[in-house]
């Protein structure tokens, strides 16, 4: 059996966000409020090597947000052996596609197949008659339907998620406004601006080690990938801002400021790749980080005006 689902492909979504969006769209539901958790910045000063711990620092509430605002619940379930997984897939698949937590190393359609180990989420949309092969959507990697032997992709034990579509409830304006508070609280409670400052300070003295190291998979690649993740999540946060503006709960200037921040992170990334390739640094990147810090603070201050 197989669900006929059209993947939602968006270059800014993480693999997990892409799956939630795909299922919501399959159920003809919206999903824009899941991105209200996307504004963050984590950096551990002690991190070795530089840039490896950079992280978008989500609030980790996206499944709760999907349920509250869009009426779709994700039911997580653990399995302890592959046969157990096949049993679950057989029993649950008729009601819902299944999110499988796996490793890109095992995904033949992903560029990192047999090269890098990175946590990944894919959507099982069907299973073959002999229960050996599964049909996969992975909108983060491609827009195609992929087929793989279940034994080759599923970890020996792990986690899956099934969906349940609930009736929509009427939400109040306060429910939406609460997400502004949650964003600002997250910024305050996670040391967002201190993290940015630490990153800026370390960048001045440690970028050289990234640029000159031959171990690109340990130094350059994590820095570049993590900056892309942060840039992408700023664009995702813009989806939430746009929703709030459409409800007249925020002013449009906040959206354009956040879009500009996302662009700056993207530009920073491109300049860093260029400098790493040319093994030549210049002051431009430091100036862009300073600009990002100032713009992030400006948005934060402006958002505070709408805090309840």
């Amino acid at each position: 059996m197989k669900h006929n689902i059209k993947p939602i492909v968006n270059e800014y979504y993480s693999c997990h966000q892409g799956l939630l969006a795909t299922y919501a769209s399959y159920q003809k539901r919206e999903y824009d409020m899941i991105f209200s958790e996307s504004w963050g910045f984590k950096y551990q000063k002690e991190d070795q090597p530089f840039g490896m711990s950079l992280d978008p620092d989500y609030q980790n509430r996206r499944e709760l947000l999907l349920e509250k605002f869009h009426g779709i619940k994700v039911l997580d379930k653990l399995y302890t052996e592959k046969n157990g997984l096949i049993d679950i897939v057989q029993s649950k698949l008729p009601q819902s596609p299944i999110i499988l937590h796996c490793d890109v190393f095992d995904c033949p359609w992903n560029i990192s197949y047999q090269r890098n180990h990175i946590d990944h989420f894919i959507l099982i949309i069907g299973i073959s008659d002999n229960f050996r092969q599964i049909y996969i959507l992975d909108p983060y990697s491609n827009k195609d339907e992929n087929t793989v032997d279940i034994a080759n992709i599923a970890p020996a034990s792990g986690e899956i998620g099934c969906f349940m579509t609930l009736p929509m409830v009427n939400l109040k304006t306060e429910d939406y406004l609460l997400e502004i508070n949650n964003s600002l609280d997250h910024i305050d409670n996670t040391g967002f601006f201190k993290n940015l400052e630490n990153f800026y300070n370390d960048f001045q003295i440690r970028f050289e080690e990234v640029m000159l190291s031959e171990y690109t998979d340990v130094y350059a690649i994590p820095l570049i990938i993590n900056l892309r993740r942060i840039a992408n999540q700023r664009y995702c946060y813009c989806i939430f801002l746009n929703k709030m503006i459409s409800k007249n709960l925020l002013v449009p200037s906040i959206l354009s400021m956040m879009e500009s921040i996302a662009e700056k992170y993207g530009l920073l990334r491109i300049l860093l790749i260029k400098q790493i390739m040319k093994k030549k640094s210049n002051k431009e990147c430091s100036d862009i980080i300073t600009e990002i810090m100032s713009k992030e603070y400006e948005v934060y201050e402006k958002m505070k005006l709408f805090k309840q």
Partner: peptide
């Protein structure tokens, strides 16, 4: 991908002896 684009940018800069500003 973006790494490929940056390779291209560097090659263009070398070919025409100039540098794109940010």
């Amino acid at each position: 991908d973006s790494v490929g684009i940056v390779e291209l940018i560097i090659s263009i800069e070398e070919k025409y002896d100039f540098e794109f500003s940010s």
